[in-house]
């Protein structure tokens, strides 16, 4: 979904306060930069953007004052709960130019090794790829069903669409099936009435003050 068209307007309200007021009205503040041109502050409809990004759009055509251009979504900032977008960075892009972006890796399937007592661990959550701006894959979905205990899924095993080059080291581990370590015996809880264990003090510790009776003397 690369031919998403959204309407945007130039933005005069900048800064925290201005942006906050815009968000209250359902408008999303954004910035446009790149290609050696000066940056522009713009705003667009939040709902339209959320729908577009939910469908996996990485490039969008923004119509600003009747002039349409293509942009790459560089970064989306979310609120503290990760629910609502609060700001978007767009980069000016030509759809036929090659770009470098990070693409997420989402593992699919339950590996055989898990039924043999192993644990599936993912070490690489995203890979950097180089491809045409119009052909950025949304997410990579490697199938891990064949992995047994001790086996790894490396970057070289990832299948990517034609024209997409992965820039990470081919030997980097994406995921592995790890064997379980022997469970460590938890230290016994302190018996009631005994002194609770205290952490060690860093630095010079002041010697304890003498008891009050000694002070009176």
């Amino acid at each position: 979904m690369s031919n998403v068209q959204l309407k945007a307007q130039p933005r005069k309200k900048v800064g925290t306060s201005g942006s906050r007021k815009l968000r209250e009205t359902g408008v999303l503040p954004a910035v446009i930069y790149g290609h050696g041109e000066p940056p522009e502050s713009v705003m667009l409809d939040e709902h339209e953007f959320v729908v577009a990004i939910g469908h996996g759009a990485r490039t969008m055509a923004l119509n600003i004052n009747g002039k349409e251009s293509q942009f790459l979504v560089k970064e989306v900032q979310y609120d503290h709960l990760g629910k609502r977008p609060i700001h978007v960075d767009f980069v000016r892009v030509d759809l036929t130019e090659k770009v470098r972006v990070k693409v997420g890796v989402e593992l699919r399937g339950v590996p055989i090794g898990v039924s043999h007592g192993g644990i599936l661990e993912q070490y690489l959550a995203a890979v950097e790829v180089e491809c045409l701006a119009m052909a950025i894959p949304e997410t990579l979905h490697p199938i891990v069903q064949h992995l047994d205990v001790g086996q790894v899924l490396a970057v070289r095993d990832l299948v990517v669409p034609e024209g997409v080059i992965i820039l990470n080291d081919p030997n980097d581990t994406v995921a592995a099936i790890r064997t379980l370590a022997e469970p460590v015996e938890a230290p016994a809880a302190a018996e009631p009435g005994t002194e609770p264990q205290l952490p060690e003090r860093i630095g010079r510790v002041r010697p304890e003050e003498p008891a009050e009776e000694e002070k009176k003397k």
Partner: peptide, 12 residues
């Protein structure tokens, strides 16, 4: 056993 730091600079 409950979690706590191993070393601290100030006790309180």
């Amino acid at each position: 056993m409950a979690l706590m730091p191993k070393r601290v600079k100030w006790r309180k």
